[in-house]
Amino acid sequence: MKIVVCVSHVPDTASRIKVGSDGKTIDPAGVTYIINPYDEYAVEEALKTKEKLGAGEVVVVTLGSENSKETIRKALAMGVDSGVLLKDDNQRDSFGIAKALAEEIKAQGSQLVFMGKQSVDYDNSIVGQLTAELLDYNCVTVCVKLEISGEKVTAEREIEGGREVVETSLPVVITCQKGLNEPRYASLKGIMAAKKKTIEEKSAASYTPKSEVVGMNLPAGKQPGRIVGSDASAVPELVRLLKEEAKVI
């Protein structure tokens, strides 16, 4: 079985964000890029599934510019067999990303696809579902437990107040949440081996955008709050403020 895992190349979550000169995207100067944290769970689950089946192949697919190869290499170092870069230097909307991923998954003939639950740049949590719908595949999002036996897929997804147990079948796109597994570290051997693995470059499928970012702003800084005191003697005043000024209790 061929397993595809989609990973995105995103700014480190600790990065300081500045608006770029176009007023619509971030200024990349000084920003470190990493593999999207949730996508590490996706890579791990793909590798674990392959190991369990004892056969098959895991392919990592990333849409982005030349720089995204760094993130592909990271997945290869963890143990993924080969990589595909769908090259596009321009920002795409989520639909455009999903369109390109769906075309590639079709070309790979894969019935089992892993993604992260969310990429930490645009924080959308939609590319998995969009891709699955475009392919007419089933899809389980925010997955924290997974079992695949034959065609049958049993998964648990995290929702408000608990976990839903979902039953579905292949072909399927699974989006992975923290808790699903513990991503392995890339070993030195893995890092060396990754250098020899191939990254195929393809042009990303064309699309007509469905949405457009027209502006980016930094949130208005909050007025500094009030320090009510420095010990328990400030508690009655705090409670009074919550009751009379904020009116929240």
Partner: peptide, 11 residues
């Protein structure tokens, strides 16, 4: 977006 560090306007 970016964990609340920026807001985008989308059409």
């Amino acid at each position: 977006t970016y964990a609340g560090k920026a807001l985008i306007d989308v059409k």
